[in-house]
Nucleic acid binder design. Structure first.
Lengths: 160, 160
DNA sequence: CATTACTTCGAACGTTCATTCTAACTCTTC
DNA sequence: GAAGAGTTAGAATGAACGTTCGAAGTAATG
């Protein structure tokens, strides 16, 4: 709280006029991150069926960039760690995950005509969700090389 | 420390006869986890070249099982979170990661004759490293369905 | 100008936590 | 069985942290 107050240029006590507790701040951060991610997924819905596969393959680079970004990757890991000890945060994360999973699976089913879309989605989410851990363990990661093979994998997973 | 003492059936003070500090306990846990993981990778080296690809595809199921195990996945996420605020732990993780990455990449290069093995390894490590986050966000994850597509992806990534 | 409401501060509080220390206990050795 | 070394407990310590609270400051209203 002291550090947050410092960064927000206010006293620690003053923060409690905006947030009920530190947990409320954390919940707000997580909610904002979930909302931002949901927005990203919403963009896919506007893409015509015949372009979707190619678009997903191309967007892989952005996904790698975003999920290995120093700020974003640290925040995402921090959120995961918080969810392990804070049931309220875990619940937020799970509800959000269920939502984006079904959105994305529906996309694959209807636009790409794929069976078992849920399993494919889980694999893709595992990969992008795993990037923060990867960059933590190997900060010198060659993003381009990884992206190249990721694109191969995506094409394979999104094929019948 | 109180909780550790309770689980170890000793007083909190007594623990300090075995470990210098709480950080030393954490470092020991991380070192043990790294050693166990390194052992697992060492097993691959005994596999003949012509069986390796098939073995890796088959071992995917075990990898999913292990990395979504309630204890193991929570511990791995906890270690990652710790590394974010404890430089000593981060260094251990990175040194270990460099080691296993090069072991595995050498395997792919010499036994499977693959180029750009490093990139392939990064993708595989990203996937398995991402499983703890996946199971956290979706505890109801269908492991079999995920494993099926993971095997497809592995075959694709380990092809020329 | 006076009164009221809102804003902001920072000290104080209570709790939690890792760590230290002293004293008691247990075993070994002569 | 006495002495000494190693072991264990548990209270004490001091720091860190989230939160509360009263006072001081600022703006709005009549």
């Amino acid at each position: 709280m002291a550090r947050i107050a410092e960064l927000a240029h206010m006293s620690a006590g003053h923060i409690y006029h905006y947030f009920e507790s530190k947990d409320a701040i954390i919940a707000a951060i997580v909610a904002r991150e979930c909302a931002m991610q949901a927005e990203g997924f919403a963009n896919f819905e506007a893409i015509p069926s015949e372009e979707l596969l190619q678009a997903l393959v191309e967007k892989a680079g952005e996904g790698v960039e975003m999920n290995t970004d120093p700020f974003q990757s640290v925040l995402n890991l921090e959120i995961a760690a918080e969810a392990q000890r804070n049931p309220a945060i875990a619940e937020m994360l799970r509800a959000h995950d269920t939502k984006v999973r079904s959105i994305f699976a529906a996309l694959l089913t209807t636009k790409l005509g794929l069976k078992d879309a849920e399993g494919r989605v889980e694999l893709l989410f595992t990969i992008f969700g795993g990037l923060p851990i990867r960059i933590l363990r190997n900060p010198g990661l060659d993003r381009d090389s990884l992206t190249a093979f990721l694109r191969k994998a995506i094409r394979s997973v999104l094929r019948d």
